[in-house]
Design a protein around this nucleic acid. Structure first.
Length: 397
RNA sequence: GGAGGGGUGGGUGAGAGGCUAAUACCAACAGACUGUAAAUCUGUCGCCUGAAAUGGCUACGCAGGUUCGAAUCCUGCCCCCUCCA
């Protein structure tokens, strides 16, 4: 029985589950969303802000913090928690994602990944063992194995090779990892290939990690594909261990992926969108800089209880963005993070109530993620109607 | 009064006979962003028609002219700036 995770309740109609994650820095109820603070800060927010928004756990990044300020600086200052003055749980990512996102700055082999620093151009060799060493020094509550995260669209052969390498690395990470009170998670790979996903889940489960991440998704593949990969993967993971879907954070994805049995999420999306002027509401996402908000009196989201919505008009936020005032980024981040935290609270409550399934239906029914999607839908409809009227006119787009 | 320099699309400002409805930046308008190299990136941006290619119209101070062709050359006029008196 794992002390890390306790399953509280399972939804009778979906695979959604509510539980409790317990770490040396406290417990967090699941499903949980971790805002991303790669460089030891969730951009624009203080630890107090985060707590007041309901954030119980955050993600930081090994690769970024290793390059700057460096392992020594952080360990001399008493570890990552002390360094950033955050006394609640932290999860550190291994740098695996940077193997992917900084692809043109690296060379990768079975031994590890050779990086060129984006900061000063210096070369660094990140091995599985080194990734663990760094993460042990940082002292996060949950750490990740080093993995290779190939882009969506790669051939099955190349996805398979990356997966096998990730498996190899996972074993090496596990062998290296010694620090007590720190949980090391394995990461399932296999891209969008069901067979590979099953194989990966099987292999990693045999290594018996205290928790399992699902990586290599939300990289641009269609949402249905991501969902079906979860359907393939999640049931193969042990029920008494937490499942963590890496890199997912849009409202509709969170709801749909919880329904497929995921307990933990992280994503830079809410914070980045906020800084780029996109704000969530119950019905859709808006770009706050749009002219429609220039004189809008009420808050951006009348249903929201965040500081930004309680205090400022949409018009004011619009103005701050137009004027590129620093406060804009912070206020929008506060709103988006709070929106997601509130969503997670609603999700969890409904699982405990036994009403998750209808909550999910209502939410998905009433939420149109982006304008592009809304317009694509409208266009499809319009074209459909036109086809019915004039079947002889073949429209090719 | 004299000597120079200049007037370009909403703004700043390139262009010095055809490749120019006119570079670039800004503004404006819209879109994207999912284990953060991101306070970032992309598209549109004279008017009319169009889904679009395209087509038509009007445009580089004003009025004439040279030329097959002018924002670019010439003449006159108007305005602005600098220096000298």
């Amino acid at each position: 029985m794992s002390r890390l995770f306790k399953l509280t309740k399972t939804c009778p109609e979906t695979k959604a589950r509510a539980g409790m994650l317990t770490t040396p820095h406290g417990s967090v109820p699941t499903p949980v969303f971790l805002p991303v603070g790669s460089q030891g800060t969730v951009k624009t927010l203080t630890p107090d802000d985060l707590k007041s928004l309901g954030v119980g756990m955050i993600l930081a990044n090994t690769y970024h913090l290793y390059l700057r300020p460096g392992v020594e600086a952080i360990s001399k200052l008493g570890g990552l928690h002390k360094f950033m003055a955050w006394d609640l749980p932290i999860l550190t990512d291994s740098g695996g994602f940077q193997v992917f996102s900084l692809g043109h700055l690296r060379r990768i082999s079975d031994e590890g990944a050779l990086f060129r620093s984006h900061v000063d151009g210096s070369e660094h060799f990140l091995t599985p063992e080194f990734a663990i060493e760094i993460q042990e020094q940082f002292g996060a509550d949950i750490i990740m194995v080093l993995d290779e995260c190939p882009p969506y669209g790669d051939s099955m052969e190349s996805i398979r090779r990356a997966m096998e390498r990730s498996h190899l690395w996972a074993e090496r990470c596990q062998r290296k990892h010694k620090r007590k009170g720190q949980a090391l998670f394995g990461i399932v790979h296999g891209g969008t290939f069901a067979g590979l996903r099953r194989q990966s889940a099987g292999f990693l489960t045999s290594l018996d990690f205290p928790g399992y991440a699902i990586g290599g998704l939300s990289l641009g593949e269609p949402k249905e594909l991501m969902h079906s990969m979860l359907d393939e993967t999640v049931p193969l993971l042990p029920e008494d261990k937490p499942r963590y879907l890496m890199g997912v954070g849009s409202p509709e994805d969170l709801v749909e992926c919880v329904a497929r049995g995921v307990d933990m999420f992280d994503s830079a999306l809410p914070t980045r969108l906020g800084r780029n002027g996109a704000v969530f509401t119950r019905h859709r996402r808006y770009n706050i800089g749009n002219a429609r908000f220039k004189q809008k009196k009420g808050p951006i989201d009348p249903d929201c209880d965040c500081y930004t919505c309680r205090t400022f008009s949409a018009a004011y936020l619009h103005h701050l963005f137009k004027a590129q005032e620093l406060l804009a980024y912070r206020l929008a981040t506060i709103h988006n993070v709070r929106f997601i935290m509130r969503l997670m609270e609603q999700i969890r409550r409904s699982i405990l109530d036994g009403t998750f399934s209808s909550f999910r239906d209502d939410f998905i029914q009433g939420y149109r993620p982006t304008d592009a999607e809304t317009r694509a839908e409208q266009k499809k409809k319009w074209l459909g109607a036109r086809q019915e009227k004039h079947p002889e006119n073949e429209v090719v787009y």
